[in-house]
C-alpha cells in the first residue's frame, strides 16, 4: 500500500511523457506527410502513398498483409520485409519508434 502511494506520483509524472507527442515528433522528423495524408497534422497531405486517415479501420497493411498493430509496426520499421516491391522507403526506425508511430496512426482519424 505504502509502495503504491509512493509509485503513484511517479506514474502520473510518466504521463507527461506523452507517447503521441513522441510519435508526432518522429512523423515530423521523417517527413511522413510529404507522401501521406495524416490526420491532425498540418501540411501532411501527400498523395504519393495512400492516405493514413483511417488506419485503425484498414483491413490490410500496404495492401498485402492483414492489418494488426504488429504488422503495421513491422511495415514501418522495414517495409521491404513485408513487401519487397514496396515503394515505401526504409527510414531506419527502431522497432520502438515504429511502434510509437503505428500506435499514433491507430489512435487518430476515422474509426479511432
Amino acid at each position: 500500500m505504502m509502495r503504491a502511494l509512493i509509485l503513484l506520483p511517479l506514474l502520473l509524472a510518466g504521463c507527461d511523457d506523452d507517447p503521441s507527442a513522441a510519435a508526432r515528433a518522429l512523423i515530423s522528423a521523417n517527413g511522413c506527410g510529404t507522401c501521406h495524408q495524416i490526420p491532425e497534422f498540418d501540411g501532411a497531405d501527400g498523395v504519393t502513398g495512400p492516405p493514413l486517415t483511417a488506419m485503425s479501420r484498414q483491413v490490410y497493411v500496404a495492401g498485402v498483409v492483414p492489418n494488426t498493430l504488429e504488422a503495421l509496426t513491422a511495415f514501418i520499421a522495414d517495409p521491404q520485409a513485408i513487401d519487397p516491391r514496396s515503394a515505401m522507403p526504409d527510414l531506419n526506425l527502431s522497432q520502438d519508434e515504429a511502434r510509437l508511430i503505428a500506435q499514433y496512426l491507430y489512435a487518430v482519424g476515422e474509426g479511432s
Binding site: V47, T48, P51, D83, R85, A87
Partner: peptide, 11 residues
Amino acid sequence: DAGARKYIAGV
C-alpha cells in the same frame, strides 16, 4: 485520388 497518386499499389 488514385489517378493522382504517384504510385499504383505502392509499387
